[in-house]
Design a protein around this nucleic acid. Structure first.
Lengths: 248, 248
DNA sequence: GTCAGTACACTGGTCTGACCAGTAGCCTGC
DNA sequence: GCAGGCTACTGGTCAGACCAGTGTACTGAC
């Protein structure tokens, strides 16, 4: 006979448990309201601070939101990828993850997103990509910031076409962290205009591949472009980590 | 001139911000201790309840842990995938993310991990895979639970060989969530022994491909195996989301 | 009748102060 | 030298208070 180690269960944890249960079971639907803190404290039989700590935990998990003064009480939120985004971002900024690993991961995600996009795109999707590309073309003359915004938008459309929220969120997070790590280096790039033109023609190529439903080609273009643009910032010794991905 | 909308910033949020900043910047390393709540409250110039709500938020994010009675104060934790797992699990239980998306994501991650493993494996890695496979072989006769544990270990070795923490963690999380979603279906499988044998021979094939540095082959085997094993639990209408991944 | 303006009851955010059970380390007394 | 208790702390919880802000219901003027 074996015994399990027991951990003390805090009062606020049991409150969290009950409310969370009510939400995931569907008893409380998004948009509905929780009772006020003072009401909850009598229902649960605990002090207000305990209730508040429980609500803080749920709020950190993006399950509820409370606004001061609202007599209807805290609002139950729909499941959103914001919490996933936060936790992944934290993990990606931890020290064991360097630019090489991030870039590797981004090549994987971006490549797959392009592959799926080429196979699953509809006529509407293609139109969306066309306008995104057009915005980039205009952005070239409106400065780097504008161009960069249009570039991000293009990538987001691609990710969206893949129709996988996990892919969308992960790609977005990794892209953001990569940019955070090398933004200072990009700031000082001297030949920005030629960089933008190169990027633009690359995106046009990608769009062609997607239009002709060439998934493998689009994926390869995407990975190659990432390598070409960012590998210079990766220590030379770690670049062999990236090249295998170009061969698939 | 445009103005940004402002949101009221709560006191506990600013406390969270400062502590989080100290952790991600490395000023506070894992294992180190925060001052006690009463000390923090004088340092931040806020009440104890505010400090406590901030600590709750950080604790929910798995950044710190506090134990009552410990005079050394709350402990700073190493970045861990637990929070990522929780948020992905929550998202997966919401309607936006179904088994199809999870499986799609897992095929991407697993495929890439196998590709990298085949290209980067050392002699030591191969030996590790050999022992893992041997454990699986023995597990067949020791019941499903034992076999499953060995199977997980094999996958973890593969992921580790790819030497990318993000890949390791994401793969682990997605695998866990997928298993949680279909565990009840697996419980009732009648022909477990033949399933285990099929799995075993598949892993042997994968190991061969990795040994001969055939990255593309290993990746394809991995993705095909996932599809073969799990696609039956995906609604038929969503299976076309998975097949494009088999073609790369 | 409509509608602006106000009063009110209530919300969440914060602080203070208190008590408890539990811990770690010191400090006895042997 | 060491077992045992003492003590000064810790975090967990509660009670009560105040404040700024909100939504609503009521009031008044038109």
């Amino acid at each position: 006979m074996r015994f399990e180690p027991v951990a003390p269960v805090r009062a606020y944890e049991r409150v969290v448990e009950q409310i969370e249960q009510a939400v995931v079971s569907g008893a409380l639907k998004p948009g509905e309201r929780l009772p006020s803190e003072r009401e909850l404290m009598t229902q649960f039989g605990v002090g207000r601070s305990t209730v508040r700590e429980a609500l803080r935990v749920l709020q950190a998990a993006e399950m509820i939101r409370s606004r001061p003064g609202d007599p209807r009480g805290p609002e139950v939120l729909a499941a959103s990828p914001v919490a996933l985004h936060r936790s992944m971002h934290r993990l990606a900024r931890a020290d064991h993850v360097g630019l090489a690993e991030l870039l590797q991961f981004r090549m994987i995600l971006d490549g797959s997103a392009h592959l799926l996009a080429a196979e699953l795109r509809t006529a509407d999707d293609l139109a969306g990509l066309d306008t995104a590309l057009e915005a980039m073309r205009e952005g070239v003359s409106h400065g780097y910031a504008e161009f960069s915004r249009a570039d991000v938008a293009f990538h987001e459309v691609i990710a969206r076409i893949s129709r996988n929220p996990l892919l969308v969120v992960s790609e977005e997070v990794v892209r953001g962290v990569v940019l955070e790590l090398i933004e200072d280096k990009l700031e000082h790039a001297s030949n920005r205009t030629s960089l933008m033109r190169a990027w633009l023609s690359h995106h046009a190529e990608v769009l062609d591949a997607i239009r002709s439903a060439d998934g493998t080609g689009a994926a390869h273009l995407a990975k190659q472009a990432l390598y070409d643009n960012y590998a210079e910032h990766v220590p030379a010794g770690q670049r062999p980590l990236l090249t295998p991905l170009l061969r698939s």
